[in-house]
């Protein structure tokens, strides 16, 4: 049984100060929107905003461990950030397979990231995958 159109995966995560510091060190991104609470409040936000790169790291977790899993190779991600994610908020990624080309060995998915009712981000991904991991009953191309 391999991947099929309509398959979905979920992942929840909460970002805390330690991860923000770690990402700041790795990325060397010191922009005030991620580091300065007063700066953020002056601009109408509640507090510092979680780095988009950390959100993407959790998307990477979904892709690398769930769909398409450890044998997939990402070839495209698009993401639209909608509303800010703040420290301590629990975010949930919901990813659904939307298109499979068995001939090309390609799996495409859409994802949505929510924190409660708030939409943090939406986007889509494309991965290549060994064809034997695509469900045998899948036709040469399927899509939602």
């Amino acid at each position: 049984m391999g991947i099929r159109v309509g398959d979905n995966a979920q992942h929840e995560f909460t970002v805390e100060v330690e991860e923000m510091k770690w990402f700041q060190t790795v990325s060397r991104d010191h922009s005030r929107i991620h580091t300065d609470s007063d700066f953020c409040r002056e601009r109408g936000f509640d507090d510092v905003i979680v780095y988009g790169g950390i959100v993407l790291a959790h998307l990477s977790h979904v892709l690398g461990t769930k769909i398409p899993g450890k044998n997939g190779t990402s070839t495209r991600w698009t993401i639209n950030y909608r509303q800010p994610l703040y420290l301590g908020e629990t975010a949930r990624i919901e990813l659904t397979v939307t298109y499979i080309s068995k001939a090309a060995g390609v799996v495409e998915s859409k994802f949505k990231i929510n924190a409660g009712a708030k939409v943090i981000a939406t986007g889509d991904t494309q991965s290549i995958l060994p064809v034997e991991e695509i469900d045998r009953s899948t036709s040469d191309a399927e899509n939602l």
Binding site: T75, R76, Y99, S101, K102, A103, A104, G105, V106, E108, Q126, I128, V131, S139, D140, A141, N143
Partner: peptide, 23 residues
Amino acid sequence: LAHVQLMVLLEKKFGIRFKMSEI
């Protein structure tokens, strides 16, 4: 890699399904 992406874009644009042997 671009070839794979080209094949998928063409499948979608024309609403067709290539066979692996064709690709």
